[in-house]
Amino acid sequence: MNVCVYCASSSQIDPVHVELAAETGAAIARRGHTLVSGGGAVSCMGAVARAARTGGARTIGIIPAALDALEVTDTDSDELIVTATMRERKGLMDDRADAFLALPGGLGTLEELLEIWVARVLGLHVKPVVILDPTGVFMQLRALVDSLVAGGFVRPAARDTVRWASGVEEAFDLLEAGVAARGPAGTVPTPTVDEIVEGE
């Protein structure tokens, strides 16, 4: 399957997160998958791509021209796509992926994660979404979503469309199980009115 990985591009984070990204890339290769990434060559984004290729996996990098101009592009990608805009980049990443995996990251990672999470809740796709967070970076996000459920803003089923993992192998087990559980290719369930409202 094609696994889209959302992760940090900051060079100022704890190296443990870069190591996690490298472990993720190695697991993509070991399990016979393809990486879809944001096309960057630095920090976690670069680490996951390099490790995937080292293990023999194919990598697809998708980056907007504005970032390509800053020379942070993963030019070693097996397939490199330069888009005109960030929105086009995210749309192509969504389209090329069979599953989504979020590693610890910053605002960009949060934006991508929440957008694909809401799209899953609304029935716009049926692809599995997993958050791999062994160090608790997103602990407060998880608590916030739980509090939104308690307050009636989010239904428990919407919260539970995303799965959480504390280890790389567990994360890939969840992704693979989610892909296996999908219906025929292209099958997207029709959301209810309540699901549409709660996702807004």
Rank of each mutant, 00 (worst) to 15 (best):
Leu124Thr: 10
His125Trp: 12
Lys127Ser: 06
Lys127Gln: 07
Pro128Tyr: 10
Val129Phe: 09
Val129Pro: 01
Val130Cys: 06
Val130Asn: 05
Leu132Glu: 06
Leu132Thr: 08
Leu132Pro: 01
Asp133Thr: 09
Asp133Val: 10
Pro134Phe: 10
Pro134Val: 08
Pro134His: 08
Gly136Lys: 11
Val137Phe: 14
Val137Trp: 14
Met139Leu: 11
Gln140Ala: 15
Leu141Gly: 04
Leu141Arg: 02
Arg142Leu: 09
Arg142Thr: 10
Ala143Asp: 15
Ala143Thr: 13
Ala143His: 13
Ala143Gly: 06
Leu144Gln: 15
Val145Pro: 05
Val145Arg: 03
Asp146Met: 00
Asp146Leu: 01
Asp146His: 05
Asp146Ser: 09
Ser147Trp: 13
Leu148Trp: 14
Leu148Glu: 15
Ala150Gly: 09
Gly151Cys: 13
Gly152Gln: 08
Gly152Asn: 09
Phe153Glu: 09
Val154Phe: 09
Val154Tyr: 06
Arg155Thr: 04
Arg155Lys: 09
Arg155His: 11
Pro156Cys: 05
Ala158Cys: 05
Arg159Tyr: 00
Arg159Ile: 03
Arg159Ser: 02
Asp160Met: 01
Thr161Ala: 13
Thr161His: 07
Arg163Cys: 02
Trp164Gly: 07
Ala165Gly: 05
Ala165Pro: 02
Ala165Glu: 05
Ser166Pro: 00
Ser166Val: 13
Ser166Phe: 10
Val168Pro: 04
Glu169Lys: 00
Glu169Tyr: 02
Glu169Phe: 04
Glu170His: 08
Glu170Ser: 05
Ala171Cys: 08
Phe172Trp: 02
Phe172Pro: 00
Asp173Ala: 12
Leu174Gly: 01
Leu174Ala: 00
Leu174Glu: 05
Glu176Thr: 13
Ala177Pro: 07
Gly178Glu: 00
Gly178Ile: 01
Ala180Gln: 09
Ala180Leu: 06
Arg182Phe: 06
Arg182Gln: 15
